[in-house]
Design a protein around this nucleic acid. Structure first.
Lengths: 177, 177
DNA sequence: ACATACATGTAAATGGTTACATGATTGT
DNA sequence: ACAATCATGTAACCATTTACATGTATGT
């Protein structure tokens, strides 16, 4: 259900084609959302049928970009007012509940792998903060400021999980588990 | 795909019925996983067909509990060796990317709501640590130790996100966003 | 007697992934 | 010429939710 709002949110910043959207998700909000192109084209079709997006420009190779409509903006604002409840499933931590089946070395090795994973993500998000271009003149930078706010949540999360994983691996090795 | 391993992991600790599993998920690993009873019964059927679980006991009201089989334990251990890659979608943070559409007061109010949500979860997980009974004599407490390890990840996460949300709301109100 | 909790199962619908299928443009 | 990338769309499949459907045991 949220894919449609991820799309609307992205189009609210700037019109885009399905192709663009997949790449934008991947570049900017891949730590909270992503989409396969199959899903995006399907959802764009539905959004158009609902009148939430409108064809914007056509380009070479059948390129078709879309813009958000007024109704689409209303729907997006409405969604922002609806508090989300259930938080995400987490496959990585789910495994920790079964780690007692492995011996201490193997369990600690899993936690090491987790730490490596978190370290990599953290580095990537941090570089994204540094490399982020100053917002285009012409926009007021407000959207960009909130992008950075969201990104800082991602960074805080990865940092915390990295510390947790390192400490957990240490505990398991020390037999404190 | 992970539901089957959540089930196997729970059965590895102790045999259970479908009804039990839904409640166990809800009580112990609800911050990383949950399941509707419809999904659980369906998956238990498949697991039995695959030989990963076996009927254990029958009780009143058609109660049927299952135990994990040797093949099921092997599958579970195998899954633990497979590093998970993609991390979870996060609806709550996704909204932050569109918060620039609201005025500062409304955006800050959304962040306040998030903070309240995180505060509630944090309190609940912390009480879970306190109230957790000492592991049954008869088991060696190893499974319990890893439960606590996973729970500590949940606590660290909520604490971090709470601090982030409070700070973000403050920033937005101060017009620093 | 009645409410509550126990207990299971399935069908329809939803949301998404993966694979299949096609073709145009650009850069080397 | 050829490879890479741009660009779209759909069909089959998968996991999960929600709703429908049923019935039993326990406690008050």
């Amino acid at each position: 259900m949220s894919l449609r709002f991820a799309i609307l949110g992205s189009l609210a910043v700037q019109p885009a084609s399905g192709y663009d959207l997949v790449k934008r998700f991947d570049k900017t909000l891949n730590f909270v959302w992503w989409a396969s192109h199959g899903a995006v084209y399907t959802e764009l079709g539905k959004l158009q049928a609902d009148g939430f997006v409108e064809p914007h420009e056509t380009g070479p190779r059948g390129r078709q970009s879309f813009a958000i409509s007024d109704a689409g903006q209303d729907a997006l604002r409405e969604w922002l007012r609806t508090p989300a409840v259930r938080h995400a499933r987490d496959d990585l931590i789910l495994r920790v509940f079964s780690l007692w089946l492995l011996d201490d070395d193997a369990a600690a090795a899993y936690l090491d792998d987790l730490a490596t994973e978190f370290r990599g993500r953290l580095a990537e998000y941090e570089s994204r903060v540094r490399d982020e271009p100053a917002p285009d003149s012409g926009t007021d930078g407000r959207a960009h400021a909130f992008d950075q706010l969201a990104l800082s949540a991602g960074i805080a999360h990865e940092r915390t999980m990295l510390a947790w994983a390192e400490d957990a691996a240490r505990q398991v090795r020390a037999g404190e588990d």
